[in-house]
C-alpha cells in the first residue's frame, strides 16, 4: 500500500468509529454525561460543601479534574473494547483482516476512534463542570498533553481487552473489577497525602494516580505527585500497551485461527 492508501484506510476506520458512537449516542454520549453530572451534584455540591477544602482547594474544585479524567478514561476504554469486540463477535473484523491494511493502521484507527469519544465526552463534561465549579487553567500544555496521553493509554488498553475477550462477560470484567477500583483509588476524590505510608506506597503503582494528579496540576496547579515523574510513568504505560496491542494484532492472536 502506498502512503496515501494507508492514510485513506486510517481515515476510513476513524470515520467508521466516530459514526458508530454518534449513531448510538443515547448509549455512548448521554449516560456518561448524566453520571458525571450526578457526581458533581452529590460529591461536589451536596457532600463537598460539608468537606471544606482539600489540598488547599474547595472540594468541588479538587474533585472536578478527577471527574473529567474519569469520563475520559471510561469512554476511551469502553469505546474501543465494545467496538473491537463487537467486530470480532459479528466477524466483520474479517473485513479488515482480508484487506492489505497493516496492523499499526488498524490499531491507530481504533485508538483514534476511542480517543475521539473519550475526548468528546471529556469536553462536554468540562463545559458542564463550569456550571458547578469555577476554575481556570494553570497550564494548558500540561492539561492537553496529559488528557491526550490518558485517552491514548486507555484506548490501547480497551483494544487489548477486546482481543483477549471471548464473550461479552470478558469485556465487562475488566472495567468493573479493575478499571473502576483503580479510578476510585486513583486520587479522584481524595489526596493520597491522607493515606498512610503503606497505602500511599501501594497507590504509586496505580497509573490513574499519575494521570489524575498531572491533570489536576494542569488545571489547578497542585499535585500529590512530581509532574515529570507522572508524565514519565504515563508515557511508559503508553509505550508498553502500544507494543502489546501491536504484537497481538500482528500475530492475529484470537483473530485468525
Amino acid at each position: 500500500m502506498t502512503s496515501q492508501q494507508k492514510w485513506i484506510a486510517f481515515i476510513t476506520i476513524v470515520r467508521r468509529e466516530i459514526q458508530r458512537f454518534l449513531r448510538i449516542w443515547p448509549q455512548t454520549l448521554l449516560p456518561p454525561v448524566i453520571t458525571i453530572v450526578l457526581y458533581f451534584v452529590i460529591f461536589g455540591t451536596l457532600i463537598g460543601s460539608r468537606i471544606g477544602e482539600m489540598s488547599g482547594l474547595p472540594y468541588i474544585q479538587f474533585v472536578a479534574p478527577g471527574l473529567i479524567m474519569m469520563a475520559v478514561i471510561t469512554n476511551s476504554y469502553s469505546n474501543v473494547v465494545s467496538s473491537f469486540f463487537g467486530s470480532k463477535f459479528q466477524r466483520n473484523i474479517e473485513e479488515l483482516l482480508v484487506s492489505p491494511v497493516p496492523s499499526w493502521i488498524i490499531l491507530s484507527g481504533y485508538v483514534v476512534g476511542g480517543m475521539s469519544r473519550g475526548l468528546g465526552v471529556g469536553l462536554i463534561v468540562t463545559i458542564l463542570s463550569l456550571y458547578f465549579a469555577d476554575f481556570s487553567i494553570h497550564s494548558l500544555p500540561v492539561t492537553i498533553a496529559i488528557v491526550l496521553m490518558t485517552s491514548l493509554m486507555f484506548s490501547l488498553a480497551g483494544l487489548i481487552n477486546a482481543v483477549f475477550a471471548r464473550n461479552f462477560d470478558d469485556i465487562s470484567i475488566i472495567p468493573t473489577f479493575v478499571l473502576t477500583p483503580l479510578i476510585y483509588l486513583g486520587g479522584v476524590f481524595y489526596s493520597i497525602d491522607m493515606l498512610g505510608d503503606f497505602w500511599g506506597g501501594v497507590s504509586q503503582i496505580n497509573p490513574i494516580l499519575y494521570m489524575v494528579n498531572a491533570f489536576r496540576y494542569g488545571i489547578a496547579g497542585i499535585s500529590d505527585i512530581n509532574i515529570v515523574w507522572a508524565f514519565t510513568m504515563v508515557s511508559l504505560f503508553c509505550v508498553v500497551l502500544f507494543g502489546v496491542a501491536l504484537n497481538l494484532l500482528d500475530r492475529g492472536s484470537r483473530l485468525r485461527s
Partner: peptide, 29 residues
C-alpha cells in the same frame, strides 16, 4: 473473498459497508 458466513456489521447500511471496504483497500471515497 465471499465467505460462507455473513461477516458484515449488521447495523451498518449496505452502502456504508461497501464504502468502508473500499477504504480499507485505499480507494478514495
Amino acid at each position: 473473498v465471499v465467505p460462507q458466513e455473513f461477516n458484515f456489521n449488521q447495523f451498518e447500511k449496505p452502502l456504508d459497508i461497501l464504502i468502508h471496504q473500499a477504504g480499507y483497500f485505499g480507494i478514495p471515497r
